[in-house]
Design a protein around this nucleic acid. Structure first.
Lengths: 228, 228
DNA sequence: CGGGTCGTTGATACGCATCAATACATGTGG
DNA sequence: CCACATGTATTGATGCGTATCAACGACCCG
């Protein structure tokens, strides 16, 4: 493993929580793969062989429907660990992981992972925090899908992507629009119309650069009382 | 705490995993409340004061939308622990918990919970399994919402509720149809039509008793390749 | 400069929500 | 135990939101 990879690894929330020693033991049998955008890490229905840590890039967890269509369940940024549930329960993956960008991925063999889990109490605790955060991501998404129309969901998504939480912001999408549309539970065409609907609120989208005049306005439009 | 409550508690997946001693330490400062259907355990936005264990009954985690409408994010049966995420992260609840039936609820003060978590490695490991299962519930729900129309979602829901996984089955709903509809992301009217759509597949619904001729037929209709 | 992909926009169709009216079950008090 | 009252499911008519299909324009890359 490269020094730069180790540096990225140490910056992840998990490794900061468990400390350097535990990190070293956890990744003793692990290795890093540099993979191109579009590469598949695993497929729905597979048994977990590795636990993955995204050192660089973005990964997209998607799922296929009965008729061959597919959606995006979640998109994880750098530093995230996935998919813990399948590794812990020894059950087949419910999703397919595909890289949304070129990426560097740390692959921890599941057996190593389970041993570390049994031997390092702090690891289990740190993982609980990771899973708790992920749980909240999904809960928020379910609420959005069930309660909000497309344009509001987009507004919420932009607030999440924006770096600042008030005033003007510039969002650079490091993914296709198609991917964003799937994550938000709509088609690319509807995403386009959703952007059009947000124009009066001060959202200007040119290519993959989006200019937001006032983030508060978006947050308020998505949900005046939004918690997440 | 009553002997019968203790008995129910010991049967939960969590307590079986951590053993009697750890269970006793975990619930030392806890108490049981018998509450009627409709009672609110906590509300969206509240800080977590307790971690709850449902000893008897069903609880419904719901959320409100911008215009006062509300949905059901998940319905938990007896034996479940909730909401771990809010307790661990010390963040406000994203959902409101309301009892779908009369129930007995064990209330563990969060501070006790956090202390137990720090002191009992096996607890953290057992909680990871609980959260992993819950994660998969939500992932499955998101897939259903994004990929399947109402009637298929109902079919999937009935398969989950059915006791057997093949052949004939009788499902007794211990909740309103309105609640089931909200859980499935539709209105009661649409649920009714969804039942009508399943009639040709051998589903007869009379009141809250539902007769399913062949569970396989439903599973297949919902998704020929369903994993969960 | 031409071919291809990707984003936009319009026309139309479909699924589901909504509103409204009717039948049904459930639970209560006589 | 039955009659009644209240809330609960069904069914129909209509409208809204989003998907789908198709055409067009912008951009990228060879």
């Amino acid at each position: 493993m490269r020094a730069s990879d180790l540096e990225l690894l140490r910056r992840t929330a998990l490794c900061r929580a468990i400390g350097d020693d535990a990190t070293n033991r956890l990744v003793r049998g692990a290795f890093v793969q540099a993979l191109p955008k579009g590469a598949t890490l695993f497929t729905e229905g597979d048994e977990a062989e590795f636990v993955h840590v995204l050192l660089k890039g973005r990964v997209c967890l998607s799922a296929a429907g009965p008729d061959g269509e597919s959606t995006v369940v979640e998109i994880f940024p750098e530093g995230e660990l996935f998919v813990v549930a399948a590794a812990i329960l020894r059950l087949p993956y419910l999703v397919t992981a595909r890289l949304a960008t070129d990426a560097r991925v740390l692959m921890i063999p599941v057996e190593d992972f389970r041993l570390a889990l049994a031997g390092e109490p702090r690891l289990a605790q740190a993982l609980l925090e990771v899973m708790a955060r992920h749980w909240r991501l999904l809960v928020t998404q379910i609420k959005d899908l069930k309660l909000r129309p497309a344009a509001r969901r987009l507004a919420g998504g932009l607030v999440d992507l924006a770096d600042s939480d008030a005033g003007p912001a510039t969002v650079r999408l490091d993914m296709d629009r198609k991917l964003l549309a799937q994550r938000l539970g709509m088609t690319p065409e509807s995403l386009s119309r959703a952007f059009a609907a947000l124009r009066p609120l001060g959202v200007a989208s040119q290519g993959r650069t989006i200019r937001v005049e006032r983030v508060e306005a978006l947050r308020d439009y998505c949900d005046p009382a939004r918690l997440s």
